[in-house]
Design a protein around this nucleic acid. Structure first.
Length: 884
RNA sequence: GGGCAUUUAGCUCAGCGGUAGAGCAUUACGUUCACAUCGUAGGGGUCGCAAGUUCGAACCUUGCAAUGCCCACCA
């Protein structure tokens, strides 16, 4: 017997789903859920919980449907982030950045990774995520390493990957190149300084140049003006002196200079600006790099500036310019600067030697497969974002100057000759052949690959690529990916590009983009703001199922989710209800009966609930297939709470509990009471099993617990095809009873009669069958509405009208009918309004001609229906008026 | 500058051509033993604005506004 208190903690810890997650069904259709591997940087946040819960629902649902499901878990080494986190930890322990050797630091990071990985896996299990943890993969596992090297070599040999000197976004804090995607632009306050660049041959004449970065003047190689600039173009060809130096540079003409911006003349600093770099190339200008990797000024600048940080140097330059009278003015402006999204440092454009993947041809194919519908985004509009990015794709800088990651499989000979190979042995073989001798000292490239290089290979690496494994043949492409929109570029598009390139096939069919969770004000959750929700804390308070249920309930796609901890009550309340209704059924001896067939149920109320449940099951299945997990939950909720608990259970109480009542009223039942009771018990147990099963993907812990409780352990998806009986008559009849009960309750409320206080009533109708039917259900009506059917006459009464039935409620107290009359008149007005609108349409010939016959019929029925209601209300109004 | 999304009850959101819905909050009443993490009944919305298409628009089209996000650029 279930405990009176619903306490998830008491049973959630008893369940583990590892075994069912690892079950393989060789004969069944394959289905793969590819879990986006979390970073090994710490613990999971509520966004992970949402993402994983939805995937788990899908995986469990497919398992119940009989698919052979591979729910693949994994972890991402997350290069830069992880290294930064560990370095920070070390720093807090007194280890200076850069003081450890490569090996020593990597050892520290591996140690961190082990801890983090264990914690994350534990958290996933605590939330009931049913991955096949035996297959847990880490992006730096040996087989991943091999696959990454293979991919790198393949790209290199196909000419899609090359090393070259380019200007890249450089993070001076990490001291590494980063890709364009890792740049976050932010608006900040800055200054625009107007500086005099004196003409070489003059002490008073100058050209005015505006800049936000005066410290870079030492890298200036020209001043450019626009060819159309009438005011300045006559200066082209003249030479000016770079302020604070004696270096002379030319004034050149280039359309890049915009007469409307700054002073119209722009300084050209090819080593420190993307646009200037291009201008420099066009004009074959020299490149003067004035900064070190950490953004301190190098020895290409005057002595006093050397070794100064760029921002200190800026201050000093401005100060000296002012002193020398070379500063014209300084304006405060707002400017957008590039920041490293991991380090938060202001990035520097920096010319270095990096490895690039030429993604253009890969991107074209990646666009095509989505255009052709071979991969679908859900919701579809995310495809736009995907297309936009791929159409404007630039070479992907994949090398990083850090230590944590896949070391680039390239080796250099003593003369710098590069040998790209999957292994050092292979590189050596190539080198020997190249140099024609046996003793060669090769050194491996110091850099590692961008994290997303290995993540991009996730769909096939996890399946054993490059080996042609059984799993690969079976699951590749039969996959769904659920993730947030923020990694469509980073991850989804790279998986598609690399998947197509490596295997020639799409890596997955569906990409479901879930919403992002924000706080109640719509702000992004972040630790520094203190507005984060920890899924594990929430679980400790409310239980894992409640968290899962709530997240699913809130997961409507298309916009962000605003969430507070209080939302978890949605789940908790629902599960409490679920728990309690099963407790009720237990207390009333409803035990699952294998022999029971829903098609053979005879009591009206049984037929009605079977029909409700059937409809619910059909909806839920469609909802999940359409990734509408929120709708699925709402359909279950509505059926369980609104139909099953509120009506079915209340309705059957007199049958299950009130045997004496039944005995007294036996003449109202054609059925044998014992049989009736058995039928109801069977139906109740059957219904509960359906709920347990349909809820299992969403709230697996309680479902497991309860299925154990009712003694049906095997989980399978409810099959609605076996429910074939037509119960439409029961539906109609029970709905009449519901309407009667609701109407009586409302009237009693208006008469200020407590629901518990039984009052007499009589039935009147011009339809004798209807009277008989209502009488046959009087026991239930009496219980549900707090009334008592009288055989003798009632003298003082108020009427309740439902369809063509009038119920006279016995009442001889004084009634303040004003409020009720107000309400009725309001309702009457509304009904008339609807009736008129409907009638107007029916009077419209165009409507009759153009609307579908069903719609027209529906309108006609509506008129009849409304007329009945209007007559009823009019009758009540008249009666009430005569009372008062 | 380009693009995408959102705008429906006090709040959070469903609905996306045919009588405006849910949960929470709110009001009144109620603990008869499944459940007060509850029950019963009620109140509350010219569906952002405007035009158009349609027999009929919250829903389709266009324009506008507000909000959020993405991309690109800035001396």
């Amino acid at each position: 017997m279930l405990d009176k208190n619903f306490d998830p903690k008491s049973f959630e810890k008893n369940f583990s789903f590892e075994i069912e997650a690892s079950v393989r069904k060789p004969g069944a259709d394959p289905f793969m859920v590819l879990l986006p591997p979390p970073n090994v940087t710490g613990s999971l946040h509520i966004g992970h919980a949402l993402c994983y819960t939805l995937q788990d629902i899908l995986a469990r649902y497919k398992r119940l449907k009989g698919y052979d499901v591979l729910f693949q878990p994994g972890l991402d080494h997350a290069g830069i982030v992880t290294q930064l986190v560990v370095e920070k930890q070390l720093y807090e322990r007194g280890v200076e950045k850069g003081s450890l050797s490569r090996e020593a630091l990597l050892k520290e990071i591996w140690y961190w990774k082990e801890n983090s990985a264990n914690r994350i896996v534990d958290q996933m299990k605590a939330l009931g995520i049913s991955c096949d943890f035996a297959k847990l993969k880490f992006t730096m596992d040996e087989d991943c390493k091999r696959a990454v090297a293979k991919m790198f070599v393949k790209l290199y040999e196909d000419g899609l990957l090359y090393k070259g000197e380019r200007m890249v976004n450089w993070d001076p804090m990490i001291c590494s190149a980063i890709s364009d995607l890792e740049v976050a632009e932010k608006e900040v306050k800055g200054n625009l300084w107007y500086i005099k660049y004196m003409f070489e041959d003059s002490t008073s004449e100058y050209i005015e140049v505006a800049t936000t970065r005066p410290e870079t003047i030492f890298g200036d190689v020209a001043v450019a003006v626009n060819p159309e600039d009438q005011k300045l173009k006559h200066l082209v060809g003249k030479k000016v002196v770079v302020p604070l130096t004696d270096r002379v540079i030319p004034i050149i003409v280039d359309k890049y200079a915009d007469p409307k911006k700054g002073s119209g003349a722009v300084k050209i600093t090819p080593a420190h600006d993307f646009n200037d770099y291009e201008v420099g190339k066009r004009h074959k200008l020299p490149i003067i790099d004035i900064m070190n990797e950490n953004a301190k000024l190098n020895n290409n600048v005057p002595d006093i500036f050397q070794n100064l940080d760029r921002f200190e140097a800026r201050k000093l330059v401005v100060e000296l310019l002012e002193k020398k009278g070379l500063l014209i003015k300084s304006e405060e402006i707002k400017q957008v600067l590039p920041f490293g999204d991991r380090s938060g440092a202001v990035l520097e454009p920096h010319i270095t030697n990096q490895w690039f993947v030429n993604t253009e041809s890969l991107a074209k194919k990646a666009i095509d497969v989505v255009k052709q519908g071979r991969i679908k985004f859900i919701p579809k509009h995310w495809e736009n974002l995907y297309f936009e990015w791929l159409r404007n794709i630039k070479p992907w800088c994949v090398s990083r100057q850090i230590w944590w990651g896949h070391r680039i499989p390239a080796w250099y000979g003593p003369d710098g000759q590069v040998f790209v190979a999957e292994t050092e042995e292979e590189a050596m073989r190539k080198a020997k052949k190249f140099y024609g001798k046996n003793r060669i000292a090769l050194s491996q490239d110091e850099d590692v690959l961008d994290t997303w290089f290995s993540s991009g290979m996730w769909p096939f690496v996890t399946l054993g690529w490059p080996d042609d494994t059984k799993d690969f043949k079976r699951f590749y492409s039969n996959t769904v990916v659920l993730t947030g929109f923020d990694i469509i570029f980073f991850w989804v598009s790279r998986m598609i590009m690399m998947g197509l390139y490596a295997t020639g096939e799409v890596p997955f069919r569906d990409v479901y983009i879930h919403s992002l969770i924000r706080d109640e004000k719509g702000q992004k959750m972040s630790k520094s703001k203190g507005n984060v929700i920890d899924p594990l804390e929430l679980r400790d308070k409310y239980g894992a199922d409640a968290v899962r249920y709530t997240l699913t309930y809130l997961s409507s796609p298309g916009h962000d989710i605003r969430m507070t901890e209080k939302h978890a009550e949605i789940g908790r309340n629902f599960l409490t209800k679920f728990w309690n209704v099963i407790r009720f059924s237990q207390m009333n001896g409803c035990i699952f009966n294998k022999e029971f067939s829903p098609n053979k149920a005879t009591p009206l109320i049984a037929q009605w609930i079977i029909n409700e449940i059937k409809n619910m099951l059909i909806s839920v299945e469609a909802d999940i297939e359409n990734y509408r997990f929120d709708e699925a939950v709402k359909h279950i909720y509505q059926c369980l709470w609104g139909s099953f608990c509120d009506w079915y259970i209340e309705y059957i109480k007199p049958i299950l509990q009130g045997s004496t009542i039944i005995e007294n009223e036996k003449q109202n039942y054609d059925l044998d009471y014992t049989l009736l009771k058995k039928d109801i018990r069977d139906t109740t147990a059957w219904a509960i099993l359906q709920f347990i099963r349909v809820l299992y993907p969403i709230v697996p812990f309680i479902s497991k617990k309860l299925s154990g409780e009712i003694g049906v352990l095997d989980m399978e998806w409810p099959n609605t095809n076996t429910i074939t009986a037509n119960f439409s008559d029961a539906v109609t009849k029970i709905n009449i009873i519901r309407e009667i009960v609701t109407s009586i309750r409302a009237m009693k409320q208006y008469m200020n009669i407590p629901l518990g206080q039984k009052i007499g009533f009589k039935i009147e109708s011009n339809n004798a069958d209807m009277v008989e039917f209502v009488k046959s259900q009087s026991l239930h009506i009496e219980q549900l509405a707090g009334v008592k059917l009288k055989s003798e006459s009632i003298y003082n009464s108020v009427p309740v009208v439902v369809q063509n039935i009038i119920l006279h409620l016995e009442w001889n107290g004084t009634v303040d009918t004003t409020a009720e009359l107000n309400r009725l008149n309001k309702e009457l007005a509304k009904l008339n309004q609807i009736k008129n609108a409907t009638q107007a349409r029916l009077n419209n010939m165009e409507f009759i001609e153009k609307a579908s016959p069903e719609t027209v019929q529906e309108h006609k029925d509506r008129i009849i229906d409304i007329d009945t209601k209007i007559n009823g209300i009019t009758y009540i109004i008249k009666s009430l008026e005569s009372i008062s």
